[in-house]
């Protein structure tokens, strides 16, 4: 297990470095950063000054090494637009995004996995059909539309939940449902397919033959084997929810990191965009790493050669 963990960790670090190179160079390749910073009415003298001030005249590898070194110490530079340290800017926004992401993935897992199991136990039953309907609807409904429907229903008509903002836990209920519902169908269908396959396996019959009860067979013997691909999927979705929840954040006016990314891109706020790309990528990398570890724990064939 230790060797496996170290190997995965090594890979994760390599991927992180690669991503840092790409995120650094993409923005430098997208035009002269000094021009973007100076604005449309800048004189050549202004450009010169800005270039020198920010060190854009240095060779790219030096700029990269400098940027990475600072980034490793939590210093992503100053935001061009907010004139604040990027790190504190992101830290503020990240707590909102993290809360939303964690709630959404938990909501998705705790509804989709039991539904998938129930659907697999009784295929073509009412439960299975309802679950199928829910997942088709989930795939078909755009999240902005679903979000607006919820606001109309629960905030305007029933006046039960606040429509926007992030002041209290009630503010997170609707965004959690919208974001989680987006991840549900895939998790549910994968759980169902995995359980259907595993429940037909010979070792399930063995468990029954030993005299194990239905619940024990289902959750101890079957689910542990069926859940492995679901863990990998959930990790990717978690990464997506933390980085790509821009639409949901915008609808419910939750000022999270996704929203900040969108703002920064439209304002050419280079250091913020760079930092966000790196952080979002790191989320993916961390969650993939964690899901690898979880799967190795679940399935000994992964961890013991």
């Amino acid at each position: 297990m230790l060797a496996f963990t170290l190997k995965r960790l090594g890979l994760a670090v390599l991927v992180t470095l690669t991503v840092s190179v790409i995120s650094f160079s993409l923005l430098h390749l997208s035009g002269n950063p000094a021009a973007a910073l100076a604005g449309e009415n800048a004189t050549p003298a202004d450009l010169e000054a800005i270039t020198r001030q920010y060190g854009f005249d240095r060779p790219l590898p030096v700029q990269y090494a400098d940027w990475l070194w600072n980034a490793l110490h939590g210093d992503f530079g100053q935001s061009y637009y907010f004139k604040l340290p990027v790190s504190s800017l992101i830290a503020d926004r990240l707590s909102v995004t993290m809360t939303l992401g964690v709630c959404a993935i938990c909501f998705a897992l705790f509804t989709a996995v039991p539904l998938g199991v129930a659907a697999a136990v009784r295929p073509n039953s009412i439960i299975d059909r309802t679950a199928l309907f829910l997942s088709v609807a989930g795939q078909a409904m755009p999240s902005f539309w679903f979000g607006l429907v919820l606001i109309v229903l629960f905030s305007i008509k029933m006046r039960l939940l606040p429509p926007s903002g992030s002041a209290s836990w009630q503010h997170f209920i609707m965004p959690t449902i919208v974001l989680g519902y987006y991840a549900m169908p895939a998790i549910m269908r994968l759980t169902r397919a995995g359980m259907m396959e595993v429940l037909n396996a010979d070792y399930i019959r063995t468990a029954h033959a030993k005299g194990a009860g239905a619940g024990r067979v289902l959750f101890k013997h079957a689910l542990r084997n069926a859940i492995v691909p679901v863990v990998s999927l959930a990790a990717v979705q978690m990464g997506f929810m933390l980085g790509g929840s821009i639409v949901v954040e915008a609808i419910f006016a939750l000022h999270g990191a996704g929203y900040l990314a969108w703002e920064s891109i439209s304002r050419h706020d280079l250091p913020t965009v760079q930092a966000l790309i790196l952080i979002f990528s790191c989320f993916y990398i961390v969650f993939t790493f964690l899901s690898d570890l979880a799967n190795a724990w679940l399935d000994p064939r992964i961890r013991v050669g």
């Binding site: 010979d202 063995t206 084997n225």
Partner: peptide
């Protein structure tokens, strides 16, 4: 008790 035909798949891999 019962013993099955397929020893390769009759034990739980996990």
């Amino acid at each position: 008790a019962m013993i099955f035909q397929e020893p390769m798949t009759s034990l739980n891999p996990a």
